[in-house]
């Protein structure tokens, strides 16, 4: 074998080796990189389907049943005689169920005014990244609240419809970052029966809610509603609530301070009279337990 030939053979032997070496530097996956980027939906903007009192843009997964216990104590300003409000309580028990992914229906009963409320919540648009970029979610809520107390004046003709109140909300919200989510909750509330002939039946309000995640399981929450019309200035107050969401497996505990004792949309929008500035702040909590059916 002459030397020239051996050089050729050695060269031929080395060639594929260098190929291998080069090939190992890059990722094999680069060669099958998907040219089509899939749409990725943004999930878990909030830990719960409620910000605090109001509905959040969050839904439940298909087949989920959420048992919710809402509780508000009396005002802290009640002092030690009322154990800082703990002697009083306002409660709502409710069940929410998601028959499909973008639909949620719920029913609940509040102790105040013995109101039964029900709602239907539908996610029209879900925030997404990737192929389809949508920076926000749009969720529609429609609900009714039935007052089941005896009528105030039984001497006049009373109709069942007088017990009814309706509310509608287009919720627009966005998970801005992994930790920060915000939403706007424009709210239209219709009351079939109002106390005075001068009271408007229709009330328009705007709510704003947000959260800042502190750890993966704890988030700081804030929620504020401002009704634009129909309420008595200086008497009715805007509901403002701040609190924490704490998630432990299937439970979400929402602990908060609020000036609203109402536990449905009609109640917290029109029956909030306590003032933060006067210390008429109430401690409250929501417990959410989700079961998969």
């Amino acid at each position: 074998m002459n030397s020239r030939l051996s050089i050729v053979i050695i060269a031929l032997l080395i060639c594929p080796l260098t190929n291998i070496l080069r090939a190992q530097e890059t990722s094999l996956l680069d060669e099958v990189k998907d040219s089509v980027v899939e749409t990725q939906y943004v999930t878990a903007a909030f830990k719960s389907t409620r910000v605090i009192d109001g509905q959040s843009i969050e839904m439940l997964g298909k087949g989920s049943l959420d048992f919710r216990i809402l509780h508000r104590f009396g005002p802290i300003s009640g002092g030690v005689d009322n154990l800082f409000g703990l002697d009083q309580s306002y409660v709502r028990f409710g069940f929410d169920y998601a028959p499909v992914n973008d639909l949620l229906v719920g029913i609940g009963r509040s102790s105040t005014k013995k109101e039964i409320d029900g709602f239907v919540k539908f996610r029209l648009l879900q925030q997404s990244r990737g192929a389809t970029v949508l920076p926000f979610s749009l969720v529609l809520v429609a609900g009714a609240v039935v007052n089941t107390l005896p009528f105030n004046d039984p001497t006049i003709p009373n109709y069942f419809t007088s017990r009814l109140n309706y509310f509608f909300q287009p919720l627009i919200g966005s998970k801005l970052t992994d930790a920060i989510s915000v939403q706007l909750s424009p709210t239209f509330l219709h009351r079939n029966l109002v106390a005075l002939s001068t009271d408007p039946n229709d009330i328009f309000a705007l709510g704003i809610g947000g959260r800042i995640k502190i750890t993966s399981r704890i988030a700081f929450m804030v929620e504020y509603f401002h009704p634009f019309n129909g309420l008595v200035k200086g008497v009715n107050q805007d509901p403002l609530s701040i609190g924490f969401d704490i998630e432990t497996g299937g439970h979400v505990f929402q602990l908060h301070l609020t000036n609203a004792s109402g536990l449905n949309e009609r109640a917290f929008l029109t029956d909030t009279f306590n003032k933060w500035a006067k210390g008429e702040i109430q401690f409250g909590f929501n417990i959410s337990r989700v079961f998969q059916l």
């Binding site: 999930t43 997964g61 087949g63 989920s64 998601a98 992914n101 497996g249 989700v290 998969q292």
Partner: peptide, 8 residues
């Protein structure tokens, strides 16, 4: 199987 598990 459970939506909540997936979220968590």
């Amino acid at each position: 199987e459970k939506a909540l598990m997936q979220e968590h």
